[in-house]
Every structure is written in structure tokens, then in C-alpha cells.
Design a binder for these strands. Structure first.
Length: 168
DNA sequence: GCCAACGTTGGC
DNA sequence: GCCAACGTTGGC
């Protein structure tokens, strides 16, 4: 029997818009990751991200951008209905029920890192220095993370891997 | 606030 | 299909 291979992702958010604390405060600590309007990120949301995948929550566009928490995917890609709302910030007149164009996933809060992992810190770490998010000019708001990077984040944060339950 | 990097748009 | 102009992202 073949089990789904868990994948890992980094998702950016501007904390004054939606922060890790906002996610933790949501009902069921779960929110839909809406408003992504970039095709490459859309493709990840629509095609690649699956229930159970791990998410590194990254705060962007602040003085000290950093990975601040971890979350998990609780619903795979489905149409982002905010594209259909003409009064919303994420309205896209080209989108329709039949052709949603944009997709989102649901993510649930797992943990806040005891200390945010800043870019400066990441850049000094032998494994984490390779993360896509550090690449100059990388604007992708949803990007893949390797399992090695995922485990390194948890290790340096002093957290146990939430997907490893006892044993092993 | 600056500006480099990038994605998108639209004229041709 | 090319590419210049433009808008946005996001670190600094």
C-alpha cells in the first residue's frame, strides 16, 4: 500500500494583514489561504499541496522577516471564492464559478516557534541557508521546502516534529 | 522610502 | 512572439 509522501511548504504572509497569531485565533485554528494571485503559487495550491502537508509560516515585509510558526494543510486545493467577490480586495473579473482561475487551501495552526527564525539566522545555518525564501528577488508566496529543511527548522526551534508520533 | 527583481500587460 | 512599460513584492 502506497502512502502519500508528505510534502512541506513555506507560505508568506504580511503579519499586519494575517499573522501566525491570527491563525491561532481562528475557529479550529484553521483558515483558508486565500488571495494568492500568482500562477506559479496557484499551481502549487491547486495541484501539489495535499492534506497533511507541513507549512512553515513566514512573516514578510517587516523589519525582521522570519519563520514564525508551523501549520498543517487540512484541505487541498479548491476554488478561491474571493476572486468572485467584486467588493473584495482579491476580486478578479475573469474568474467565474466554471473557471475559478485561483485556488486556495486550508491550513491549521500547529505551533508558534519559541523564537522567530530571522533571515539573518537562516542565512547562517548550513541547511537553512539553502531555502528558496532567502534567494534575492524571490517573490513566490507559496514555495516548496525540503524535508531536511523542515526538520532543521524544528530542530533549531527546539520543537519535536509534529508529524512524528512516538516510536521510531 | 528606496529600489531591485519579478510578473503581467499590451502595442506592434 | 517580442519587448517596453508598468505594477507589485519585499528586503533593506
Amino acid at each position: 500500500m502506497v502512502k502519500h509522501q508528505r510534502h512541506y511548504w513555506l507560505m508568506k504572509s504580511e503579519p499586519h494583514c494575517f499573522s501566525i497569531d491570527d491563525l491561532a485565533a481562528e475557529p479550529n485554528q484553521t483558515a483558508c489561504w486565500d488571495g494568492v494571485r500568482n500562477y506559479q503559487a496557484r499551481n502549487f495550491l491547486r495541484d501539489a499541496i495535499k492534506v497533511g502537508d507541513g507549512v512553515l509560516f513566514y512573516h514578510s515585509n517587516i523589519a525582521k522577516p522570519a519563520i514564525v510558526g508551523v501549520a498543517e494543510v487540512t484541505r487541498a486545493g479548491y476554488p478561491d471564492h474571493t476572486a468572485l467577490d467584486p467588493n473584495g480586495d482579491h476580486f478578479d473579473p475573469r474568474a467565474s464559478e466554471d473557471n475559478p482561475i485561483w485556488y486556495m487551501v486550508d491550513v491549521r495552526f500547529l505551533a508558534k516557534l519559541p523564537v522567530p527564525l530571522t533571515r539573518d539566522f537562516l542565512a547562517e545555518h548550513p541547511v537553512l541557508a539553502t531555502m528558496d525564501v532567502l534567494r534575492k528577488g524571490n517573490r513566490l508566496s507559496v514555495q516548496p521546502v525540503t524535508e531536511v529543511q523542515w526538520q532543521a527548522v524544528l530542530q533549531v526551534a527546539g520543537l519535536s516534529d509534529p508529524f512524528v508520533t512516538g516510536g521510531a
